[in-house]
């Protein structure tokens, strides 16, 4: 099972001038086996939704709920949300100098498996295979996490983690931004492999329709000014491709 049910979610962000409301009541349901795309203009609150779900300390949920298979995420610490099955692929993955990818992956896997370390005999092979599927060399594992990675390497590393850690639900925030067309394909194929297991959920946040040519969503949501303003299928993405967000932004204003 992989049901992510978001209802009435209100979120404030801490700013220098005090708290500011960004999400103004988000309702969204991702059911087992579904791929959802969230599309919206810059500044509409897409990343805020992703961060708030994962529990980033700067984003405060003031009302509403987010349940993953019945577990209320909003009451959990960041690591506990991951243990509940949530994964956040970040728009700007964070550099952690001096911590190798291999060490990071092993530590994360151990934590997610309840403190049981992965098998020394098979795990490095799994890691290498996952990296290879995303066109990353084995030597990549000994580099520091995101430190000095190119934009494309950062995003491919996020998807390698997705495949290795295999959560119930993946929230992927602009996983396609800053990628050239070949890299978009590689990343999309990774998402497809993950989704093809059939019992997972994907929430794909994107600004452009480009990645949707390779990863086909079951549902498309248009996000404007902190809420979902329109829902549909792939035809909605096609419409956005032609018309842009302007009409929705005007309607919301």
């Amino acid at each position: 099972m992989a049901d992510l049910l978001i209802s009435g979610l209100h979120v404030e962000v801490e700013t220098e001038t005090g708290p500011k409301e960004i999400l103004k009541g988000v309702d969204l349901a991702v059911h087992t086996g579904e791929i959802h795309a969230i599309m919206g203009p810059n500044g509409s609150g897409k990343s805020t939704l992703a961060y708030a779900l994962a529990g980033h300390p700067k984003y405060h949920i003031t009302a509403g709920s987010a349940k993953l298979d019945g577990v209320e995420l909003t009451e959990l610490k960041v690591d506990e949300r991951a243990k509940a099955g949530l994964f956040l692929g970040m728009q700007y993955p964070v550099e952690v100098p001096g911590v190798s990818v291999a060490n990071f992956l092993r530590t994360a896997k151990t934590a997610l498996d309840g403190g049981v370390a992965p098998k020394v005999r098979t795990w490095p092979k799994e890691v290498n295979a996952a990296l290879a599927r995303l066109d990353l060399e084995a030597a990549f594992a000994s580099r520091s996490v995101n430190d000095g990675f190119s934009g494309g390497e950062k995003k491919r590393h996020e998807i390698a983690q997705l495949e290795l850690l295999n959560p119930k639900v993946a929230v992927l925030d602009e996983i396609d931004s800053g990628l050239d067309i070949d890299a978009v394909k590689v990343v999309a194929e990774g998402i497809n492999r993950y989704a093809a297991q059939g019992d997972r959920g994907v929430l794909l946040i994107t600004h452009y329709t480009r990645i949707l040519r390779y990863t086909t969503p079951d549902f498309v949501h248009v996000f404007v000014d902190g809420r979902v303003v329109e829902e549909g299928g792939t035809e909605l993405a096609e419409r956005l491709e032609v018309e842009g967000y302007e009409k929705f932004v005007k309607a919301a204003a």
Binding site: D79, L88, V94, A111, S144
Partner: peptide, 30 residues
């Protein structure tokens, strides 16, 4: 201490203590 680093590591299921340990080890590793 960089809260973003902590958040990134914890979002992968790593506990706060373990995440802090990784960051400080990384800081000295060089």
């Amino acid at each position: 201490f960089d809260e973003e680093q902590l958040f990134y590591l914890m979002s992968r299921g790593i506990s706060e203590l373990e995440a802090r340990r990784l960051v400080v080890q990384g800081f000295f590793f060089d």
